[in-house]
Simulated assay, not measured.
Amino acid sequence: MTSRALRSFLFLLTLSFLFVDVSVSISFVPAAVGVIARQIPSWLRLIRASKFFSNMLNKFKSFFNMFKELKLGNIAKGVSNVKQYLDLFGYLNSTLHSNFSDDFTLDLQSAIIKYQKNFNLNVTGQIDRKTYNIISQQRCGVPDIINGTTTMSMGNSNTTPFTPVNNVSDSVKVLFREAFDRWSKVTLVNFTETASFNESDVRITFLELDGKGGTVGGADRNYSLGVGSVYLDSEEEWVVRGENEEGDVDLESVVMHMIGHLLGLGHSSVEEAVMYPIVLPEKKTELSYDDLQRIHQIYHVK
């Protein structure tokens, strides 16, 4: 039987962590990792974005029921949804935001090319089946491109104080400890568990985001304060230990991904990497060569 985390409208994990060995390499200086704090969404913005993404995926289903490749110059109902998706994750960088047309424009072609490059797809500039197959999957809610710069190299924000309700099982707490330990070994950053949610430097929160599917969570950091947060969608079918069934999400894999954001990593184009932004059925808790190469560039650990 699959063991699952408790689900409710809102429950907070008071298993939080405090940096106790803070060296220069983890001083949260924006220049060290190339992200400005105000550019990453707060938890409230993440909730709105996640619900928007979930609604968008439902529209994609009808859009691609009668699938055909679309390219520059085509006009087709549903193209506006693709534009909204690409804008949400930083590819389109449009000032129009929700006012998108169904025209396949040069801007859309450019955005698709960036997306295809990031996900190691054939660069066609067209909405083809392989591109749709990636777009239509669950994913991390952190943008791939921030302020015009691809981050498939980061995360941050001021967090609102909560009064925690700890409905989390011991097995989930152990899972978090083990995930932090894996990252600690490759960064030499020590983490200490604390029961004080509001006074901790890393806050872990289960929130109702966009329902089952869509975005599974996100992570952010505040460089000036040196704190970070992990947000997980409480409505997902989280698998704590055991085999995934269709529609399930492996909690440990997602937690590993989010801690990577806290430590300064953005998304990876390598499908085997923990920092790949798409949620795949395979459990991914061991750091890939790509993950190690990039984290060592930040923390200078050999």
Score class of each variant (00 low, 15 high):
80 S>Q: 09
115 Y>D: 03
152 M>H: 11
10 L>R: 11
150 T>I: 13
77 K>D: 04
254 V>W: 04
126 Q>P: 00
236 E>N: 13
103 D>P: 00
257 H>Q: 09
288 S>Q: 14
36 I>M: 14
7 R>M: 13
65 N>C: 00
131 T>N: 00
83 K>H: 03
271 E>F: 11
133 N>G: 00
81 N>D: 12
263 L>K: 02
194 T>K: 12
166 N>I: 10
235 E>G: 00
72 L>C: 11
127 I>F: 08
214 G>R: 06
156 N>D: 14
99 N>M: 13
71 K>D: 08
166 N>A: 12
232 L>W: 06
93 N>V: 05
84 Q>D: 10
206 F>E: 02
91 Y>I: 04
191 F>D: 00
32 A>G: 02
250 D>M: 10
192 T>E: 11
227 V>L: 09
180 F>I: 05
113 I>Q: 08
121 L>I: 08
168 V>S: 07
68 K>S: 10
173 K>G: 13
144 D>S: 10
149 T>I: 05
236 E>P: 06
264 G>T: 05
259 I>P: 02
200 S>R: 02
212 K>L: 15
93 N>W: 07
233 D>Q: 04
199 E>Q: 12
16 S>D: 08
83 K>S: 00
81 N>E: 11
259 I>Y: 04
88 L>E: 09
83 K>I: 01
38 R>N: 14
71 K>S: 12
154 M>P: 10
41 P>D: 07
217 G>L: 02
241 R>H: 12
107 D>R: 09
185 K>P: 01
254 V>F: 07
253 S>H: 12
37 A>G: 15
8 S>G: 10
178 E>F: 05
185 K>V: 08
194 T>M: 06
85 Y>W: 15
111 A>I: 05
10 L>Q: 12
185 K>L: 08
97 H>P: 03
71 K>G: 10
251 L>H: 07
75 I>L: 00
174 V>W: 08
21 D>M: 10
4 R>K: 09
210 D>S: 15
42 S>T: 15
203 R>P: 04
83 K>G: 01
276 Y>P: 03
212 K>I: 14
89 F>W: 01
163 T>V: 15
256 M>D: 01
50 S>F: 04
252 E>G: 04
66 M>W: 05
300 H>C: 11
109 Q>V: 09
17 F>S: 09
117 K>I: 11
